[in-house]
């Protein structure tokens, strides 16, 4: 997969986390090819898209990062990532991040991509797998824990 595809997503992720949630996310390094199976850190959100190519964008947050983001955005504290408001915050953040990134990709490469609504989930020992599609991931460090951005593209 072309590692350049990760750039707009990671930039949008850093922007939105800073602007909306007041969380600075520092990338740990270059994008790397991830396994077919991704072990969730705690709370994950997937947005899939289709157009001239198809793919999915995943953000994966340590539980503490998700709880802190929800707290900073809504002003209330939450105990569990399974609370609806925490899931809704992560889902909406991913929606905005992916919207920004997709717009850039469409403008730059004319891919005519459209987004499906976000999916968000939290559970115990969660593994996410997207069959037959390679993904490129970037891990980031924040003051509250780790987060991961992962992009997988398949030909339409």
């Amino acid at each position: 997969m072309d590692m350049r595809m990760t750039v707009p997503f990671v930039e949008a992720l850093q922007d939105i986390f800073k602007q909306m949630a007041m969380i600075e996310a520092q990338t740990d390094g270059e994008p790397f090819t991830d396994n077919e199976e991704v072990h969730s850190y705690g709370v994950s959100s997937i947005i899939t898209f289709a157009g001239k190519i198809k793919g999915r964008f995943l953000i994966d947050l340590d539980t503490q990062v998700a709880l802190q983001a929800a707290k900073n955005i809504t002003g209330s504290s939450y105990d569990s990532p399974k609370e609806q408001m925490v899931l809704a915050v992560v889902s909406e953040m991913n929606n905005i991040i992916s919207g920004n990134a997709i717009t850039k990709l469409n403008n730059e490469y004319g891919l005519s991509l459209r987004l499906a609504p976000p999916i968000v989930f939290a559970g115990t020992d969660v593994i996410i797998s997207i069959p037959k599609v390679a993904s490129a991931s970037v891990t980031c460090t924040t003051a509250y824990g780790k987060l991961k951005a992962s992009v997988a593209i398949s030909k339409a």
Binding site: R56, P117, V120, T124, V126, I127, I130
Partner: peptide
């Protein structure tokens, strides 16, 4: 319409939101 690639999620006791 287009169908986007399926994701398979494994795990126990998972809370999902798939639609706002």
């Amino acid at each position: 319409f287009d169908i986007t690639p399926p994701s398979i999620i494994f795990g126990k006791d998972i809370y999902f939101i798939i639609s706002s």
